[in-house]
């Protein structure tokens, strides 16, 4: 199962990197989103895939699964969600003002 998860996150990250290197503004945003998902999966995998009870004080308390990776991922998801929303608005405004979504044209002048 670990192998499968690692390969999955590897593929997702590869897709993310590919999108990140394209010239369209929106695709770069999607690339960032994919990369974030890959990283989240990686956190889950690298901290060990476990089966166990929820970490609550019940009769199964002794065999609980480590809750920390999940808490970490939850926080990371919220943060990447917020930044993605901001990034989408920013891309839209950039597109509106510059009238192009081609990053090659958004390089700026040579003398800057």
């Amino acid at each position: 199962m670990e192998i499968l998860m690692i390969v999955t996150s590897g593929v997702i990250i590869a897709v993310g990197v590919y999108l990140l290197m394209t010239r369209s503004i929106l695709r770069v945003v999607f690339g960032i989103v994919m990369l974030a998902h890959g990283a989240h999966l990686l956190i889950l995998t690298l901290s060990g895939l476990q089966q166990g009870a929820p970490p609550l004080l019940t009769e199964e308390a002794a065999s609980y699964a480590d809750p920390l990776p999940q808490a970490v991922i939850l926080t990371a998801i919220v943060i990447s969600f917020g930044i993605t929303a901001f990034l989408l608005v920013l891309s839209y405004r950039t597109y509106k003002v510059h009238q192009t979504d081609d990053l090659e044209e958004l390089r700026g002048n040579a003398d800057e």
Partner: peptide, 10 residues
């Protein structure tokens, strides 16, 4: 930041 997360996972 995403690389930071990967490093944290490691």
């Amino acid at each position: 930041s995403i690389l930071f997360l990967v490093a944290l996972a490691l």
